[in-house]
Amino acid sequence: MADTEDVVADAASKARNAARRTVDRAREEKLEEQVSRLQDDLKRIADTLTRMGESKVEQAHGAARREVRHLVANGQQALDSVQDEFSQVERQLKDTIRQKPLTAVAGALAVGFVLALLTR
């Protein structure tokens, strides 16, 4: 009878081991499935972040372009304003020279004399 009990115990042990292996395989398959889903989720998150980053870069690029256009326009206006002022000063200087040529020549001589003294 001892042999029968040993055979039964051995069969029961083999059945438990087979059941454990089946449960372990099921757990491994479930874990692999979860890992696969997690990888897919991470890929989708990375894609979403990439699209969001690209969108923000495009927005920043557009804002920079608008700001550059604005600065160029402001610079051009400032340049035009300065050119107008210099033109007015030039006209006034020419008018003054025409009205008082001797005073203009004396002034030019004085300025030349002062510059000569300073450069020595």
Rank of each mutant, 00 (worst) to 15 (best):
D47V: 02
T4H: 08
R25C: 07
R66P: 00
T119D: 13
E85P: 03
R16C: 02
D41E: 14
T48R: 09
V68Q: 03
E54W: 02
V114D: 01
A18Q: 04
Q83C: 04
T96N: 06
V72T: 07
R37M: 11
A104P: 01
D24S: 12
A110Y: 02
K100G: 03
V89F: 03
A73H: 03
A104R: 00
E90I: 05
A116Q: 10
L93A: 09
L109M: 08
N74W: 03
M1S: 12
H70A: 12
A108D: 05
I45T: 12
G53Y: 01
V68P: 00
E67S: 10
K14N: 14
R120T: 10
L115E: 07
V111G: 06
R37I: 09
V111Q: 11
V23S: 10
E67G: 02
A63S: 06
H70I: 05
L49F: 06
F113L: 13
A63H: 02
V57Q: 03
V23M: 08
A63P: 00
R25W: 02
V57E: 08
K43R: 15
L115A: 09
E54P: 00
S13M: 13
V89S: 10
A2F: 10
K43Q: 07
E58P: 01
G107T: 15
D6P: 01
L102H: 11
E58A: 15
I97W: 01
Q76H: 04
Q88F: 05
A60W: 04
A116D: 07
H61R: 15
G53S: 07
K30G: 04
S81C: 03
R44I: 09
L79H: 08
N74K: 12
R21H: 08
Q77A: 15
E54H: 05
V82T: 05
Q34M: 09
L42K: 06
L71M: 00
V23T: 13
A116N: 08
T96I: 07
E90T: 11
S81Y: 04
E32C: 03
S55M: 06
L93P: 00
K100R: 14
R44G: 04
M1P: 05
D3K: 03
F113C: 13
A63L: 03
V35Y: 09
M1Q: 13
V35F: 07
R27Q: 12
A18G: 01
D47Q: 09
E5N: 14
T119N: 11
Q77I: 05
R25I: 07
A73I: 02
G62H: 13
